[in-house]
Amino acid sequence: MGHGHDHDHDHDHDDVSLRVKALESLLVERGYLATDAVDKLAEAYEHDVGPMNGARVVARAWSDPAFKARLLEDGSKAIAELGYGGFEGGHVIVCENSDDLHNVVVCTLCSCYPWSVLGLPPTWYKEPTYRARVVVEPRTVIGEFGYAVPADKAIRVWDSSAEVRYLVLPQRPAGTEGLSEDELAALVTRDSMIGVGLPLEPARA
């Protein structure tokens, strides 16, 4: 096998869990790991960095035309106004949905994703099925998530193959006039910011 790949090919969770513990143990001994850094990163990406951040960005864009203009001009800079940044968020471009165009994001080569606004990606986003199919048949794939993109709307698929990360700005749902930014944020789903779904409607929130 070479390269230290001496494990067997059993992929059950117990085996993987043991190998990860063994790796952590060896890295601590060799000075390549601080246990408290691992703890703090897990805590942050489990609780503080997630799609609720992106939802706030979208709700602000729906409520504040000047912010929306800045967001479309320079995504990461406008996002930083709300305090979000860091790894996989240093260069964000915001893709605005319209009556004519629906946007959907993928990374076919790995799983690049705008961590600063969406957190860590969901399982299906990382798996080969989505990555293989959405570039060829986005309308069908989005349909499998429960949204039938209208036939007269073009679809643009963004393959995040370099350093830019993409966030979809969904259209503001009808019937949301007068809602506060907090109320609007509650309608913004993770899927609507990847492009495989729509925001919730007010009655369903």
Partner: peptide, 8 residues
């Protein structure tokens, strides 16, 4: 599809 997960 899932129910909107993130994290681990």
């Amino acid at each position: 599809p899932d129910s909107g997960e993130y994290g681990f």
